[in-house]
Computed example of a mutant assay.
Amino acid sequence: MKSKQFILAVGFAFLSATSLMSCDSKKENKAEEVQDQKEDVIEAQNEGDTAKVMEEQSELDSARKDYREAVRDSVKSANN
Results as ranks from 00 to 15, higher is better:
Met1Glu: 15
Lys2Trp: 08
Lys2Leu: 06
Lys2Pro: 04
Lys2Asp: 09
Gln5Glu: 14
Gln5Ala: 12
Phe6Arg: 12
Phe6Trp: 14
Ile7Gln: 12
Leu8Met: 08
Ala9Pro: 00
Ala9Val: 03
Gly11Thr: 11
Phe14Asn: 07
Phe14Ser: 13
Leu15Cys: 14
Leu15Asp: 06
Ser16Tyr: 09
Ser16Pro: 03
Ser16Lys: 03
Ser16Cys: 10
Ala17His: 06
Ala17Phe: 14
Thr18Phe: 10
Thr18Pro: 01
Thr18Tyr: 06
Leu20Met: 07
Ser22Pro: 02
Cys23Met: 14
Lys26Arg: 15
Lys27Cys: 08
Glu28His: 13
Asn29Val: 15
Lys30Gly: 08
Lys30Thr: 13
Glu32Ser: 13
Glu32Leu: 15
Glu32Met: 13
Val34Trp: 04
Asp36His: 15
Gln37Phe: 13
Gln37Met: 12
Lys38Pro: 02
Asp40Arg: 14
Asp40Pro: 03
Gln45Ile: 09
Asn46Pro: 02
Asn46Val: 06
Glu47Trp: 00
Glu47Asn: 13
Gly48Ser: 05
Asp49His: 04
Ala51Ser: 14
Lys52Val: 05
Lys52Asp: 07
Met54Asp: 11
Met54Cys: 06
Glu55Tyr: 01
Glu56Val: 00
Gln57Arg: 03
Ser58Trp: 04
Ser58Lys: 12
Leu60Phe: 04
Asp61Met: 02
Asp61Cys: 02
Asp61Pro: 01
Asp61Glu: 15
Ser62Thr: 10
Arg64Asp: 07
Arg64Asn: 07
Arg64Ile: 12
Lys65Cys: 00
Asp66Pro: 00
Arg68Phe: 06
Ala70Ile: 00
Ala70Asp: 04
Val71Gly: 00
Val71Arg: 00
Arg72Pro: 04
Arg72Phe: 07
Asp73Trp: 09
Asp73Thr: 09
Asp73Ala: 15
Ser74Arg: 09
Val75Asn: 05
Ser77His: 06
Ser77Pro: 03
Ala78Trp: 05
Ala78Ile: 02
Asn79Val: 12
Asn80Trp: 06
